[in-house]
């Protein structure tokens, strides 16, 4: 009896030692969790999650202070990927948050008074212009965060949905009938 216990204990110790050694010896240097979460977030920097940007939100998620369903630009797909990364169940987007199609902000050139307020609001510096000069939004760099809409004193900025064109068009998920359309 005693021998059996001793043998088992010895075996356990030995195996544990090997495992411990292996985990130290073959440690995989990983990105910190924050970086991984941040990589999934769409980098819109819109603040809809309640944090001042994607990185702070990523930090909050990694600390367990924020839920994974607070990012409307990422949509259900983003939530799913976060859930996969963190090993939790995906859930629908949080209350009051909704995924909108990708849009970019457009300045109405006739109304812009050149106040630079939108330039200061833009989190990715995608608006060019100077005081008393008309401002222009670089569409390629606009993340669609809508942060420039409210500062504009003359409401000359609006969002335009990005429509797909020949260059960005994608083949759709094939939908085909499983029901016979005609006798075969």
């Amino acid at each position: 009896m005693l021998t059996a216990i001793l043998v088992m204990a010895l075996g356990g110790l030995l195996l544990g030692g090997v495992l411990g050694w292996a985990s130290v010896r073959y440690r995989v240097e990983d990105d910190p969790l924050v970086e991984k979460i941040d990589a999934i977030l769409p980098q819109t920097q819109c603040g809809q999650c309640g944090f001042p940007g994607c990185k702070p939100y990523a930090e909050a998620i990694s600390k367990g202070e924020a839920d994974i369903n607070r990012c409307p630009p990422g949509g259900e797909d983003g939530v799913k990927r976060l859930a996969e990364l963190l090993g939790v169940d995906p859930k629908p987007l949080g209350e009051g948050l909704e995924h909108k199609p990708k849009s970019v902000a457009v300045i109405d050139e006739n109304l812009c008074i050149g106040c630079t307020l939108c330039i200061q609001a833009c989190p990715v510096d995608a608006i060019v212009g100077a005081a008393k000069q008309m401002h222009v939004i670089v569409a390629d760099q606009c993340t669609g965060c809508e942060l420039c809409l409210s500062p504009c004193p003359v409401e000359c900025i609006h969002m335009e949905v990005v429509h797909e064109d020949v260059a960005t068009w994608k083949w759709r998920y094939p939908v085909y009938t499983l029901h016979p359309t005609r006798p075969h």
Partner: peptide, 12 residues
């Protein structure tokens, strides 16, 4: 695009 946005935001 998101990588670019991240870089631009960091620079901002």
């Amino acid at each position: 695009a998101s990588e670019q946005a991240r870089r631009r935001h960091e620079f901002h």
